[in-house]
Design a protein around this nucleic acid. Structure first.
Lengths: 257, 257
DNA sequence: CGGTTCGTTGAGGCCCATCAATCTATGTGG
DNA sequence: CCACATAGATTGATGGGCCTCAACGAACCG
């Protein structure tokens, strides 16, 4: 083991530069964001389909998705799973770790991903000193709340077609930042994972995708989603973006003009 | 009007004494709770089944249920409704008003209720000064998050029986404070409102109640719920109270011993 | 080329929705 | 005190959306 050779003087605290510039924390003034960054642990890669956090684990760190997607999920005795939250690049995976040690859900990554862990006590200390950080954390919690409320409506009262359509409309907006502008986006979920999100079976998700394609509203090919008729899709899903509280409510532009 | 006779010097700021003592804010030190109380508007009664907040309204006040129950709900074009949150006495109805003006849901009261409205700017100012208040608000948001996540699991992956059983288990714990100790509680929801909570139809809720009664797990009579075999009920619902983050995790005590 | 993962298709069945009617309890006015 | 109205609970019959089971196809990979 040669590791010791490369260690600098013990007091130097050299941290591999962690950047939160492309995350939800980008809304903060540079100064405060940098304080968060210096509280963070080094970023690390996570292999596709592995758990950042297992169900039942405890943790005292916040996990930030600097690259890639993840989900929160819960499992039942018979093995059936429900995804209770999707995290796109820039999102925080387990906000509740700030106040509760035991999440009660697992966090799993889709595709290759890169994660930054920030110790909760550090975040809490910063939140105490900077009202803006506290407010941003509160905001993230409240947005998650809005999303989960909408998911409850979808799961409780919508058909399979509507649910799928609604999810795609939601992701289309949440990805607005990262999107390549072409009106399509990459969706790194398998149909089985979509099923676990929508409360359906993989088989039925497959059939539902075909129905939406037949209607000319959705094209999914090679993990890439295109929404040729967004207004119609939004209409059938009864989608209104208000609950996402994303500043600019991207317009209904029809077929990429 | 003789009121004037009892007014003390004009500087005294006499407000009809609003008490948050029996609400979620009871966790605060008296001093800080009193500051919130003096920011609050006078409590007022709400008639059964009326809206504190209508879908699509905007608001700049927090509504606290000092007495009675309420729900958050969303409606679809065809009139079908989904309840996306139940508030029991002491709960805050619309936390997200703190940061967002338009809730995107309605708030409706069950049975007679008494509500205290607190202007959001007042609450935010206090949260800025007292870290404990900010933390309590965050805590409430995160608990709501946990509950909604659990509801997503129920709506997505559980049978009607399990969903109903799970809801009753949850309420049994959330009402632990107000409960009369007899192991039963008053549930001021009609079967139709239960259906809107569970993502079912009223007819099927009725049949499901009867199934649980036949199993000896639930007795509902006259708006009063009794759970004769709580361990069995929790087992069938796969209920674990962790997600409620209620300090004392009330034990599984079988049939009121 | 065999193995694995993911997607696709078909047949059959069940849970829950739908529609409709009846019953009960409560309240209201004549 | 009774006729009537209304809200909520209950029961039955029927149907459909989604599940289940099973098999096959396609893409990727060591």
């Amino acid at each position: 083991m040669l590791d010791g050779l490369f260690q600098s003087a013990p007091s130097a605290r050299v941290r591999p530069s962690v950047s939160l510039e492309r995350t939800q924390f980008a809304a903060l003034p540079d100064e405060e964001r940098r304080e968060l960054e210096s509280a963070a642990m080094p970023a690390y890669d996570v292999r596709s389909n592995t758990d950042v956090l297992r169900e039942g684990d405890t943790t005292d760190q916040l996990y930030v998705m600097v690259e890639g997607w993840a989900c929160r999920y819960k499992t039942m005795r018979d093995g059936s799973r429900q995804i209770i939250g999707l995290m796109v690049p820039g999102d925080v995976a387990n906000l509740d770790a700030l106040l509760f040690g035991r999440p009660g859900y697992g966090v799993r990554v889709f595709g290759a991903a890169r994660v930054v862990a920030i110790p909760c006590d550090g975040v809490l200390a910063l939140a105490e000193r900077h009202g803006r950080i506290a407010k941003l954390l509160m905001r993230m919690a409240l947005v998650e709340n809005g999303i989960l409320g909408q998911w409850a409506l979808c799961l409780g009262r919508q058909s399979a077609q509507q649910r799928l359509a609604h999810l795609l409309c939601e992701l289309d907006i949440r990805l607005a930042d990262a999107e390549d502008g072409a009106g399509g986006f990459v969706l790194p979920l398998t149909q089985e994972q979509l099923a676990d999100t929508l409360g359906l079976t993989p088989v039925h998700v497959n059939r539902t995708i075909q129905q939406l394609r037949a209607l000319g509203m959705v094209v999914i090919s090679n993990r890439t989603v295109t929404l040729p008729d967004l207004p119609a899709l939004r209409n059938m899903a009864e989608f209104t973006p208000g609950y996402l509280h994303t500043g600019r409510a991207k317009p209904d532009r029809a077929r990429t003009d």
